[in-house]
Simulated assay, not measured.
Amino acid sequence: MRVLITGANRGLGLELVCQYLERGDHVFAASRHPADAVELQRLHQQYADRLVLLALDVTSAASIAAAVQAVNNATDALDLLINNAGVYPNAGSGDAHQRLGQLTHEDAIETMQVNAIGPLLVSQALLPLLRAGRKGRIISMSSGQGSLTWKATGDPYHYSASKAALNMYMRSLAAEIGHMGLISVIVDPGWMRTDMGGNHATQEPADSARGIIRLAEQLHAEENGSFVTWQGQPVPW
């Protein structure tokens, strides 16, 4: 398996990197500043033959192009892309940046660029490599907060809207790449104890990672375009 994971330097992304490496897979771990990613650097020393660290800012066209070129230099195909990179401005800080009365253009644009637009453009850029892989799959990390059906609060405005936008982008992508033999699914990884999720979250990243890896292994063409939990249960749009 040749897998590329964005947002790989911490939280769920880092856990996915670890578990794929432990399985014996080849991993491309992308983050904005890999030289500063202590855990990734440690893993690279241990798995130098199967782990490639990539610099990737999903909001930058030049950065996406450079990362894709680096992957092309190292392999002729990818089997799986996991769009995991995401932001939740001021998560856990206790301030009100995503509440009515405190909303700003800057926070809205950053959140939409990283959480929705970035994954679409990264996926687009990697399509040739995924088409060359074995049963190429794209898994994009969304959230129950992106479900219109489940949405029952105001805060967080930007995060929820960005995940709903991601869902539409990836549903649209699925409609086209299904004809290429590829599969795109959207996954709610659950509320995890990470820097983003905070200490009150209900599950460990390791559990979500195991479920996501199992899900990726078992995907079938009829599931293309679906929105599911990390345990494979349908999430309402």
Results as ranks from 00 to 15, higher is better:
Val27Pro: 11
Lys151His: 15
Gly92Ile: 08
Arg32Lys: 03
Ala209Ile: 01
Ala116Thr: 01
Gly144Phe: 02
Gly86Lys: 03
Asp76Ala: 15
Ala29Lys: 07
Leu219Ala: 12
Gly198Met: 06
Ala70Pro: 06
His97Trp: 13
Arg2Glu: 15
Gly101Gln: 09
Gly211Lys: 03
His220Glu: 15
Ser208His: 04
Gln233Phe: 03
Leu4Glu: 10
Gln203Met: 14
Glu223Pro: 00
Val17His: 03
Val68Ile: 06
Pro119Asn: 13
Leu166Tyr: 01
Gly197Asn: 07
Ile183Glu: 12
Val52Thr: 15
His158Gln: 10
Lys135Phe: 11
Arg23Asp: 12
Ala165Lys: 05
Tyr157Cys: 04
Leu78Lys: 09
Ser142Glu: 01
Met180Asn: 10
Thr229Pro: 04
Leu54Gln: 04
Ile139Thr: 04
Gly86Leu: 03
Leu148Ser: 10
Thr104Gln: 14
Asp49Trp: 00
Ser184Gly: 12
Leu53Val: 02
Arg50Lys: 15
Gly178Arg: 12
Val114Thr: 09
Ala37Trp: 06
Ser143Phe: 04
Glu217Ala: 14
Ser123Gln: 04
Ala201Asp: 05
Val27Ser: 12
Trp191Lys: 05
Ala30Tyr: 07
His105Glu: 15
Ile82Met: 10
Asp107Met: 07
Ala37Val: 02
Arg32Gln: 07
Pro234Gln: 13
Thr194Leu: 02
